[in-house]
Amino acid sequence: MSEPVIVAENLTRRFGDFTAVDAISLEVSGGEIFGFLGANGAGKTTAMRIFCGLLEPSSGRASVAGFDAMTEPEKIKNEIGYMSQKFSLYSKLTVKENIRFFAGVYGLSRKQAKEKTSEIVDQLGLANTADALVTDLPLGWKQRISFAVATVHEPKVVFLDEPTGGVDPIVRRQFWDMIYEAAERGITVFVTTHYMDEAEYCDRISIMVDGAIAAMGKPADLCKQYAVPTIEDVFISLARKATRHGD
């Protein structure tokens, strides 16, 4: 197995007297697809913000792509991509402009950005819509373009925060085909989702309850361990025990 790309050791984050993330430990290897599950308010977003170098841990340690979240957050940002359903593309820019813009932000040269843009346009079959404003595109296309943009610089890790809400079952699966292909190229994928069937596409998952990791492993092993048919059943039995509410 390759070197771990994401490491957390007793990672903790407090806000005042509230412990949002409570001593979590995990290791994710290169090219692994890791599903980071939990109810709304379980602490996923806080942990993800630490991994992205956006928030300092209160105690414990986190490192991503070999850089420490406390001391080298700026270096982490160079090595990762990030996509969320809530924000990812500029709706008043065209598809091409978006790709070129993000390629620039992620430090690609003008020439690389141009090459990458036509590569993505080809791959996604967007030749006819490359000059359309993003706002006019169906949600499923936006999601796939967002993912392509988040990986335009071939990062070591891509963080996906609920990337696939609301699309039809075929489009949702086309999105997962892209995730699999990125993982095959060696990109580590760290994804949160509320679709429990998507949890089963992951190599491993963790389920957070009240800031702590309540279960972690391969989806099939967790189903066996809890003697239930699906990850949804595992999730519900664990999340029911939560004592805190809300986001």
């Binding site: 109810a39 709304n40 359903q85 809400g165 509320h194 999730f235 519900i236 999340a239």
Partner: peptide
């Protein structure tokens, strides 16, 4: 209209 979009499985249930 889509009352359960973006809501976790327990709250959905």
């Amino acid at each position: 209209d889509e009352p359960t979009t973006g809501v976790d499985p327990v709250s959905r249930k």
